[in-house]
Computed example of a mutant assay.
Amino acid sequence: MTTQERFNIVKQILEENDLPVCTLNIKQFDKVSELQLIAGAKDIVKKIKRYEEHIDSNNMKYPEYIMRCVRKNLDLDEIDVSRDMEIYSMSRKEIFNAVCTWNGLIGYGNKIADWVEDIYQISLND
């Protein structure tokens, strides 16, 4: 199967399920074999729908781009909302460190927070 054929199948699956054809959704099919893709990849469709329902609920403590970083830092798929309640219970410092780490600033979360406090003369306490 060519890349174009694979894309067309993914696009068709998304459209048949009234899901947006966007990079985030298309990426969910990257790890699926051709056989699974041809079979319809129902589990992925369910996962995407669960994610969309979650972000549409508007009960998010942090912006979605922050949540994606934290999820990936916790070795979750970026749209896996199964541990979001656990993430919401993390301190802001833990969230900040997770985002920094995911973005390659390993071990710098606290230092960056200190710089922000010192430069802007504000307190970032939880």
Rank of each mutant, 00 (worst) to 15 (best):
F96Y: 09
H54N: 14
D30L: 08
V81C: 12
A41L: 06
K93N: 09
P63Y: 00
E64P: 02
D43F: 07
D80R: 04
V45Y: 00
R68Y: 04
Y88V: 01
F7V: 05
N110F: 02
I13V: 12
K49M: 05
V45A: 08
I66V: 15
L35D: 15
V116D: 04
G40P: 10
N58S: 13
D118P: 00
E15R: 08
D56C: 06
K31A: 10
N73H: 15
G40D: 10
I13F: 02
V45M: 07
D77V: 01
F96C: 01
S123H: 10
E117N: 10
Y88D: 01
D43N: 15
S89C: 07
Y51A: 04
I55C: 04
D43Q: 13
R68H: 12
K61W: 04
N8I: 08
K93D: 13
K61A: 04
L37F: 11
A39R: 09
I106D: 13
S89R: 13
V21L: 09
E86Q: 08
Q12V: 04
A98Y: 02
V116I: 15
S82E: 09
I112G: 09
V70K: 01
K49L: 05
V116T: 10
L35P: 01
G109S: 10
R6D: 08
L35N: 15
I66F: 07
F96E: 00
N59A: 03
D84W: 02
R50D: 15
Q36L: 12
A113T: 11
R6V: 05
M60F: 02
K72R: 15
G109Q: 06
E64V: 11
V10F: 04
N59L: 12
I66R: 02
G109R: 06
V21Y: 03
A39G: 11
K72V: 14
K11E: 14
K49T: 14
S91V: 04
I87H: 01
I87F: 03
Y108Q: 14
N103Q: 10
V116M: 14
N17I: 11
I9M: 13
G109N: 07
E78M: 11
D75H: 10
G109I: 03
K61I: 06
V32A: 12
A113G: 03
A98F: 01
I44D: 00
Y120W: 12
E34K: 14
M90I: 00
R6E: 10
Q121T: 09
E15C: 04
S123W: 01
K111Q: 12
